[in-house]
Design a binder for these strands. Structure first.
Length: 421
RNA sequence: GGAGAGGUACCGAAGUGGUCGUAACGGGCCCGACUCGAAAUCGGGUUGUCGGUUAGUAGCCGGCACGUGGGUUCGAAUCCCACCCUCUCCGCCA
């Protein structure tokens, strides 16, 4: 959410930046009218309330001196009623304004390239050599099914399309990757590990921006104000909702493994096979709270932390800056890391690292108190996948396959495959 | 599910109809004094939000907020109703 006053004073800028994202029906046009209406009502209401307060104090004074206050009381009779009426009118207008404001996306950073969709994303880096095969590389689902470590048919029996059943060394590999990523980020990169609830309420979903606009992407628990989390970003960012942090605590860095649940509404026919697009997938997420002036640099180091996972796994990847049209609703800037998928002969997203500026912090009331200041300020929030585990597993199967249908594992995972008992 | 207790500022906590929301008191934090420096001590400061004013995220003026939403009243942290959450005990349970 952007600040009301900011929108009012920079309406042209907000309109331009929103257009740059390719969003048409943002209702910004209504803002000016509704905002004015609200302030006029508010002014009138505040006058009435001020009057009530003043007169009530006079009545109190009279009563204290044992004098008759009946005349004043009579005069004020009905004042409460009038105030209530105005309050109700105002509430309606504010709801209207809130709808408009909640529908306005975050402003994109100046360094974000203009563009329409993912084709306009700008590559900023390439790492590793794309493997050359002397044979036709198989898809990860073929390899996985042949090895008996992936079973999509039975998963469909259990739950339907877009679910996977991992078996034997497949589930062992998934678990190893989770542990490897958590160990790297906690032991080397200084993140604190958290394991949050996998269901959150609507307030939490609203703070990070999934609600109210993107409800159709979520799974809701029937009869409860609870949703399955689409990413650990939601519970972890909400850890400090309505809190004021001390400046010396910043940046706060969390690392969290959770499964993620997404309806994938609107992606029918896309990636129907394999592990790429599932209703449930594992992810290790990195979340940061930083001072506003540090968030740019924190995004770069967050990206580096995520990249290191791929480097250690020796998986080739590239980094792209999302263009304005592909940028998420709440983000000011996003880097996607895309891993090489040999069977598809292209790079596929495996991590998304974003700076949200104060957009989420304002919605969620996350602030900090600067050392020498009386006033608290909103923090900046950032997060990034470090990494999407299912897609990492798929990349390992495809990149490290041999012509006999077996695969080999990157060295860093060996400790996770040692026999323990 | 049953019984009870409680939700007030950064934290703890007082306050049961009228300058108590510039919210007692304690702690923390920040600034200053003392000190070679620190500790201790002493002094000062420290809620958020919306609106107005303004060159201003500074000041000043005003409104609102004591879990949430309603109600009573000239006036509600305080009285009434509903709901949410936390804690304790009992029951059930992985």
């Amino acid at each position: 959410m952007l600040e009301l006053r900011f929108i009012r004073e920079n309406l042209e800028l907000v309109r331009k930046k929103t257009e740059r994202r390719g969003i048409e029906d943002s209702r910004i046009e209504d803002f000016e009218k509704v905002d004015l209406e609200r302030r006029e009502l508010l002014g009138e209401l505040e006058r009435l309330r001020n009057n009530r307060k003043t007169v009530s104090a006079e009545i109190a004074e009279l009563k204290k001196q044992k004098q008759d206050a009946e005349a004043l009381i009579l005069e004020m009779r009905g004042a409460g009623e009038r105030i209530k009426e105005l309050e109700n009118t105002l509430a309606g207008v504010e709801e209207n304004l809130q709808d408009i404001v909640m529908g306005i996306p975050n402003l994109c950073d100046d360094s974000v390239p203009a563009g329409k969709d993912e084709d306009d994303n700008v590559e900023v880096k390439k790492w590793g050599d794309v493997p050359q095969f002397a044979f036709e590389p198989k898809s990860h689902w073929e390899i996985g099914e042949n090895l008996g470590i992936l079973d999509f048919e039975r998963a469909a029996k259990l739950s339907g399309a877009r679910f996977a059943l991992l078996k034997g060394l497949g589930s062992r590999l998934e678990r190893s990757l989770i542990n490897f990523m958590l160990d790297l980020h906690t032991q080397k990169h200084g993140y604190e590990e958290v394991l949050p609830p996998f269901m959150v309420n609507s307030t939490s979903m609203t703070a990070t921006g999934q609600l109210p606009k993107f409800e159709e992407d979520l799974f809701r628990i029937k009869g409860w104000d609870l949703y399955l989390i689409p990413t650990a970003e939601v519970p972890v960012t909400n850890i400090h909702r309505d809190e004021t942090l001390a400046e010396k605590e910043l940046p706060v860095k969390y690392c969290s493994y959770t499964p993620c649940f997404r309806s994938e509404a609107g992606s029918y026919g896309k990636d129907t096979r394999g592990l790429i697009r599932q209703h449930q997938f594992d992810k290790v997420e990195l979340v940061k709270f930083s001072r506003p002036e540090d968030s740019g640099a924190e995004l770069e180091s967050l990206l580096a932390d995520a990249e290191e996972v791929l480097q250690l796994l020796k998986l080739p990847y590239r980094v792209v800056t999302l263009c304005s049209g592909d940028l998420g609703f709440s983000a000011t800037k996003t880097y996607d890391i895309e891993v090489w998928m040999p069977a598809q002969n292209k790079y596929r997203e495996i991590s998304s690292c974003s700076n949200f500026g104060d957009f989420q912090a304002r919605r969620g009331g996350v602030r900090y108190r600067p050392r020498d200041s009386k006033k608290s300020r909103l923090v900046h929030t950032l997060n990034g996948s470090g990494l999407a585990v299912g897609r990492t597993l798929a990349a390992i199967l495809e990149n490290f396959q041999r012509d006999d249908g077996t695969i080999y594992l990157p060295e860093v995972l060996e400790p996770y495959f040692e026999k323990r008992f």
